[in-house]
Simulated assay, not measured.
Amino acid sequence: MITPNTPFRLTTPWQGTDPFLFAVHHQDAYPAGDAAMGPGDAHPEGWSMYHGQRIPGFPAHPHRGFETITLVTSGFVDHTDSVGASARYGQGDAQWLTTGAGVTHSEMFPLVNEDSPNPLELFQIWLNLPPESKTAAPEFSMQWAEDIPVWSTPGGAVQIIAGRIHDVQALNPPVNSWAADPANDVAVLLIDVTPNHSLTLPAAGTEKTRRTTYVFAGDATIGEHAVAQDWGYQQLGREETVITAGVEPVRAVVLQGVPISAPVAQHGPFVMNTRAELGQAFQDYRETQFGGWPWPSTEEVFPREQGRFAKFPDGQVSQPAAGE
C-alpha cells in the first residue's frame, strides 16, 4: 500500500497506482551467447531464464484489457505476436502494446554477442485501459531510441516515453490509450540525476494527478524526504518534484496520471472490470487463441545479424533512423 508523501520500499513487481497496475525492472548479467543465442551450459548466476527453455525470456502468452510499455536500456528483445507484428528492439527503444480485446505475444532475449557478455536491462509497465477501451482493437507501436524526446538540464536528463516536460512532448501514444487524452496527464519518464545536483520536474497538470517516483539506482532526496535506492515516493496534486542526488548518480522511473477510477478484476494476464468479464476473457482465449499463433515457435527469435526493426500487422516495416 502506497501512502502519499511517505517513502515506501519497492516490492517485486513495483507497486502500481491507478491508472498504472504495476511495473517490473529486469536486470540480468547474461553471458556470451552460444550458436543458438542462448547461454548454453553457462552457470546461471546473476540472471534468469524466466520461462525460456533455450533462450531467456517469456514464450507466447496472452493478454487482454490493458497496455504494456516496455523500455529496454541494454540488450535486445525479440517480439512476435498473434496479430502478425514482430520486432527486435533494445538499446534505449520502447515498445507500446495495447492488448485491448486480446493479443498473444512472445518476448525473448537473444544473446547476440558470441564473444562478450549480453547484459539486459528492461522495464515493463502495465497501464490500465478504461472500461470503454478494454476490448478495443490491439495496437502495436514502437518508439526508437533515436526518436524518444529527451529533456536535459545541468542536473541531469529525462527520457519522455509519455507526457510533456515544459515544451518537450513525447511521441504519440496508441489511440485507445488512457494516455491519448492530455486531460489524463499521463507521463512515463526515465530519469538520470547527476551526482551532487538536483533535477526539477514541473508540477503535474491536475489536482487529481498521482505522480510516483521509483528510485532504482542511487540514494535520492525528493523534496525534504530521503528516498534510498529501491524505495519510492508518491505525490498528489500540483507541486514540483525536486530530485537530488548525492555523490552517486540517481536513476529513477516516474509514472503519473489521473486515475481511471474503475473497478479492477485481474487474474494472471487478463485485467478487466468484473469477474464475469474475466471469465469471458478465458473463454474467448480458449476458443480463438486471440488469432492463433502464426510463428514456427512459441520462443521465436530472429537471426543474430538482424538489426533493430519492427514489422506491423499490415506489412509495413520501421527501422531506427540510424539503420542499426
Rank of each mutant, 00 (worst) to 15 (best):
A281F: 04
T194P: 06
P263L: 02
G279E: 13
Q280N: 13
Q306F: 01
W295Y: 09
V254Y: 01
G218S: 03
V215E: 03
R238L: 00
E248G: 01
L236A: 06
G257H: 02
G232S: 10
P294C: 13
E299V: 10
Q283F: 08
G268D: 07
R304L: 13
E224P: 00
G223V: 12
I260N: 06
P294Q: 11
A220F: 02
T274A: 01
Q283L: 14
T194Y: 01
W231M: 14
R286A: 15
R304N: 09
A228V: 00
P263H: 03
V301M: 02
V271H: 09
P303H: 08
A276D: 14
E239R: 13
P259G: 10
G292A: 08
E248W: 05
F216G: 10
H225G: 00
A245N: 04
E299T: 10
P249M: 10
L189R: 11
W293D: 03
G205V: 11
V242N: 03
K208S: 14
T206N: 11
T221C: 14
V253L: 15
P195M: 04
P294Y: 09
E224K: 14
V193P: 08
Y233M: 04
R210E: 08
R251H: 15
V242K: 11
T200N: 02
P202S: 06
